[in-house]
Amino acid sequence: MSDTFIIEVGSQPAGIIVRCPDGYRFFAASHRFDRLEGQLFRNPREAERAARRLASGMPLAA
Results as ranks from 00 to 15, higher is better:
40 L>E: 10
19 R>F: 03
44 P>R: 02
43 N>D: 14
22 D>K: 13
40 L>P: 12
25 R>I: 11
17 I>L: 00
16 I>M: 01
30 S>Q: 09
38 G>M: 10
8 E>D: 13
48 E>I: 07
22 D>Q: 15
17 I>S: 01
23 G>Y: 07
51 A>E: 07
49 R>C: 03
46 E>Q: 06
47 A>V: 06
11 S>P: 07
28 A>G: 02
30 S>R: 06
34 D>F: 08
48 E>R: 07
18 V>G: 03
29 A>R: 00
13 P>I: 04
48 E>S: 12
28 A>C: 08
36 L>D: 09
45 R>S: 04
38 G>D: 10
13 P>W: 04
10 G>L: 08
47 A>Q: 03
15 G>L: 01
26 F>S: 01
30 S>C: 08
8 E>S: 13
25 R>H: 05
18 V>D: 12
25 R>K: 05
35 R>H: 10
16 I>C: 03
34 D>Y: 09
47 A>N: 01
29 A>W: 00
32 R>M: 13
10 G>P: 11
43 N>P: 05
26 F>I: 00
15 G>R: 02
27 F>S: 15
22 D>S: 11
17 I>F: 00
44 P>I: 00
23 G>P: 04
38 G>Q: 13
47 A>C: 03
48 E>P: 04
12 Q>N: 13
10 G>C: 10
37 E>R: 12
30 S>G: 14
36 L>H: 07
32 R>W: 08
34 D>V: 14
31 H>E: 13
37 E>W: 12
9 V>G: 01
36 L>C: 11
41 F>P: 03
36 L>Q: 09
19 R>G: 02
21 P>R: 00
21 P>D: 01
19 R>D: 01
48 E>A: 14
35 R>G: 08
29 A>H: 03
33 F>Q: 08
12 Q>L: 15
47 A>K: 00
37 E>V: 10
23 G>R: 07
24 Y>S: 03
10 G>H: 07
11 S>N: 14
24 Y>T: 04
23 G>M: 05
25 R>S: 11
35 R>C: 11
17 I>H: 00
41 F>S: 03
19 R>W: 05
18 V>I: 10
16 I>E: 00
49 R>H: 06
34 D>M: 11
30 S>A: 13
18 V>W: 08
34 D>E: 15
51 A>M: 08
19 R>L: 02
30 S>N: 08
12 Q>V: 15
39 Q>R: 15
19 R>I: 02
48 E>H: 12
50 A>D: 03
51 A>D: 05
30 S>D: 12
40 L>K: 04
8 E>V: 11
48 E>F: 08
42 R>P: 07
9 V>E: 03
50 A>S: 06
12 Q>D: 12
43 N>W: 14
21 P>A: 00
9 V>A: 03
28 A>R: 11
41 F>K: 03
17 I>E: 00
14 A>G: 06
8 E>R: 15
34 D>L: 12
11 S>K: 14
11 S>M: 10
50 A>F: 07
48 E>C: 08
11 S>D: 14
49 R>V: 14
29 A>T: 01
36 L>S: 07
37 E>S: 12
33 F>C: 07
43 N>K: 11
28 A>M: 09
43 N>S: 04
45 R>K: 05
